[in-house]
Every structure is written in C-alpha cells, then in structure tokens.
Nucleic acid binder design. Structure first.
Length: 270
DNA sequence: CGCTGACCCTGACGGC
DNA sequence: TGCCGTCAGGGTCAGC
C-alpha cells in the first residue's frame, strides 16, 4: 500500500489528532512484525505527550518527550485514528490509546511493517545511511550521476536504493523512468548527466502530484476509508503490461528486475 | 564493494 | 467448490 505519498498523506492526516495528546494506554495484540515490537511498549509510551509527527523516507516518527516511536508500514500496513471503542478487525495489531478517547490503530495483514523505540539522543541503525529525501534540494541529477559511476545495476534498482534516494517504490520508479524516457534495465552507470537531471525532475513531479492527489482523495481516511487515493491518478506504465503506450500506442513490455515487475515502452524509453 | 536471490507474511486471483 | 501456483505497494541479509 504505502509508497512515500501515502506515508506523507498519513502523516498529515494523523498529526492534528496526535499533537499534544498524551498516550494513556497501549494494546499489543500481535507483536510479531518484521521485527518484534518492544515488549515494554506500554511502559515506554504511557503518560507522555506526542509533540509532533514527522516522516523520514517511508518511516513515520512520533516524537514524544522521552524519545521517538518509529513506525514503518511495510507493504500492507496502515495507521488510522479511531474511537477506542471501535470494533477491532483482523490484523489490527496495536492500539495507542490517547487521552482524547481515540486510538492510533496499526493494521497490517502481511506484517512486513515494524515499530521501534528510539530513546532521545540515541541513533537508530535503520535511519543511518539513508540518502536524501527526493523532494529536497539535496536530491538532484548530479548526485545520482555521481553515485552511478561504474555501476552496472539496472537504473530502476539504482533509484530504488535507499542510499541513493529514499522513498522511491516500485510504482513510482516505473512511472518516473517512463516520464524520463529511460529504459528500466539500462545500466545505471551508462546514463548521461542530462538524463539524470531530467529523471530527478520527473521523480519530484510524480511524487508531488501523488501527494497532492492523496491529500485530496484521502481527506476522510482517518475516519475509516483507507482507499489509497493515488490509485485514482493516471498511471502511464505500472500495471499496464500489454496495454498501449499512452504516447506511441505500442504495447507496453514487462520484465522483472530485482524480483519486482517492471513495465516500459521499448519505443519511448531508451 | 556490488550484485543476486532468499526471506519475512497474508490474501487475492486465475487455472484446472 | 477446492486446491495450487503466482503475485502484491518494502526492506534486510547472507553469500558469492
């Protein structure tokens, strides 16, 4: 479910309900996620106020007085604000009960997500070594071109590498490469600077558009409609194998790169 | 260091 | 109807 735009949309939706609220209880129904949920989560969080909700890559960071609760949604995770008395569904693994009578409810069928505690002043290995945010000025074509020197890995794998840039998932890797006119299987080290500059622009453009759409269509997701809004947006290649290219009408090709489906136009992408 | 493939887990879907 | 294989938006890790 969550690519960067949905994580950012989730952050924006959650923050008004969390900011300044105290955690008054924690319920862990299933603690076996990608990594085990800290077994003393209740003791770590209770009585503290959430000061703000931030995002880094696809991680949500709930800032509390004594530290940070780090949450990743994996492939199928979601976080909603619900009334504490709302019925508990299958795969509703964790509740953070707030002093508003509401709860932050973590739902994750595949359990590829994770929850971590970072004490104030401590570092966390999962956050160390992350590349720049794609929407920041630290990310640009020059940086990619520089890092790609000598690399023979496909450019699609390269832009999905969190050391290069964070937050580019499979959907938007495919879409950005189409918009930039670059084949996903081209060796990263064999793409010129000007094309990397165009790719950086397209990555920023496609993510920005998706966040804008998510912000619109996910307006009420906090109440229970968790439909990812960005599915409504026009996708050029992702999920369109065999369908006509929206630029040249020829059928789109598919291949697998790094065990992930990749769709592209052999004519428009070189 | 760079790259590939296995793996964590549940659910949806298509073919038989 | 049921069973089986395949695939799914993510990320880490072992091994070569």
């Amino acid at each position: 479910m969550p690519e960067l735009p949905e994580v950012e949309t989730t952050r924006r939706g959650l923050e008004p309900h969390c900011r300044g609220r105290h955690v008054v209880g924690v319920v862990v129904r299933q603690g076996r996620l990608r990594w085990p949920v800290p077994d003393d989560l209740d003791a770590l969080l209770c009585g503290q106020a959430i000061t703000c909700v931030e995002r880094r890559a696809k991680y949500l960071l709930f800032r509390l007085q004594a530290g940070t609760l780090l949450v990743h949604l994996g492939m199928s995770g979601s976080l909603r604000v619900v009334e504490q008395v709302a019925p508990v569904l299958t795969h509703d693994h964790i509740d953070l009960q707030l002093d508003s009578g509401q709860a932050l409810r973590y739902h994750d069928p595949r359990r590829f997500g994770s929850v971590h505690w970072i004490a104030t002043g401590a570092a966390h290995p999962l956050l160390r070594g992350l590349g720049p945010e794609p929407l920041s000025t630290a990310f640009d074509g020059q940086r990619m071109h520089q890092l790609a020197r000598g690399r023979r890995t496909p450019i699609k794998n390269f832009i999905m590498d969190a050391k290069v840039v964070v937050g580019i998932g499979n959907i938007y890797a495919n879409e950005a490469l189409f918009l930039a006119g670059i084949r996903p299987d081209r060796a990263a080290g064999r793409v010129a600077l000007a094309r990397y500059q165009r790719l950086a622009e397209k990555i920023k453009q496609v993510l920005t558009n998706a966040i804008d759409q998510g912000g619109t269509t996910l307006r009420d997701f906090v109440g229970g409609d968790g439909k990812p809004g960005y599915f409504a947006q026009q996708l050029y290649v992702y999920g369109r194998e065999g369908a006509p290219c929206k630029h040249c009408q020829r059928p789109l090709h598919a291949c697998r790169l790094g065990q992930r489906s990749s769709v592209y136009c052999v004519t428009c992408q070189r």
